[in-house]
Amino acid sequence: MAIHRTESHHTDPQRRRHALRFTAGTIVAAAVLYSLVGCTPSPNASTPTATPTPGSSSTPTATTPSTEPPDDQTAAPLDGDKVIAVRLTQNWAAIGAGAPVTITHDNAIPIAPPPAAPLPSLYTIGAGRHPAMSPPYNQLSFRFQGGFPSYDLQTLSELVGDPSGLPIAMTGTAGILRVTFYSAQAHTEAGPTSIVSAPPLALGFPAITRYSPAGDFEGYVTYGIGIGRPDTATSTTPIRVYEVEKIEQGQHLYVVAIQVDATDWRLAAKTDNSAPKAGGILSQIVL
């Protein structure tokens, strides 16, 4: 896993060509090859490395599963559920406009033979407030099957749909953190969405006001995360990101948990406890 800052946009032609390598023709060819040689790829073909490039403001670290805070989820764990690995990929730091943070995973494509999805597939989305943590934070977590996708994060003033190019309204927010997962998908091979559970788009949390899908196109899955309230600055709001590999409810999941420091937002937010829970898939780091 490599972490670096880059000026590139997720629609940059070079990166778009990178994603297009994994379109249908490539996938079919790979499937034929597997049938000829009888090979089966590893369940987790991602081979991350913890070597940040120069200029990175964060250093990835690994922690043991025992350091993971308790879960918030309401479903009782099943026999065999466990945390396999926890990695910090972005420590608390502001992500400025024009200086995105990129985390790269080198996955063998396809990551599994048919009928499984050829790319990491978005399975569920979770959300949580976590006001008692130090610092207090709100969290949005993206749970994938198959492996960790690569992704980047960047603050924006406007969220734009991919590929339409049309603006997407993010009402009631002060700023937008865009997360783009690449070499990923949020649909099944038959076409419908692969997401089986997600919280309402209008979260109403102090730091994460709302979120919105912004694209699932040519190997790119994009979401906008609305930060804070209008008429307040977001350029110095710290962001932290964890990756957690785990077995949960019998599913092998790869979770990217994005945490937004709520210190500057909790006094400005409504002090009610009526915000929707995320279908029982919340937790302190990943949920």
Rank of each mutant, 00 (worst) to 15 (best):
S274I: 03
S194C: 02
Q185L: 14
A269R: 08
P230Y: 10
A262K: 04
T173G: 03
R266F: 15
P192D: 00
P213E: 13
G279M: 02
V244C: 02
H187G: 10
S283Q: 08
A233Y: 06
A268V: 14
I239C: 07
A275S: 04
Q249Y: 03
I281Y: 08
A262G: 10
Q249L: 10
L267P: 00
G215F: 12
R178Q: 15
R210N: 11
T188A: 00
I225V: 15
A278H: 07
D272M: 07
G226W: 02
H187F: 13
L253G: 02
Q185N: 13
L203D: 05
A207Y: 09
G161Q: 01
G226T: 11
V221H: 07
D162W: 04
G228P: 14
T188L: 00
G280N: 06
V244T: 12
S235E: 15
Q249G: 15
G215I: 05
P167A: 02
D272S: 13
I168F: 03
Q249M: 09
S197D: 13
A174T: 04
G224F: 13
Y242F: 15
T193A: 10
P276T: 11
R240H: 15
L267H: 14
E189Y: 04
A257L: 13
G280D: 09
T271C: 04
P167V: 04
I227S: 06
Q259G: 05
I285E: 12
T209Q: 14
A262I: 05
S194G: 03
G250T: 00
G161V: 01
Y223Q: 04
F181T: 10
P238Y: 13
A278F: 07
V196T: 09
A202H: 02
V196N: 08
G279Q: 00
G172K: 00
A186K: 00
W265H: 06
A184Y: 15
L201Y: 07
I176Q: 15
E243F: 00
A268S: 14
L267D: 11
K277A: 04
D261I: 03
A233I: 10
D261N: 15
Y254I: 06
N273S: 13
E243M: 01
S274T: 10
M170H: 03
P238H: 04
D162P: 00
P167W: 01
G172Q: 03
T180H: 10
Y211I: 09
D272L: 02
F217A: 06
E245W: 09
D264K: 09
R210W: 11
G172D: 00
A198Q: 15
S212G: 05
P200L: 09
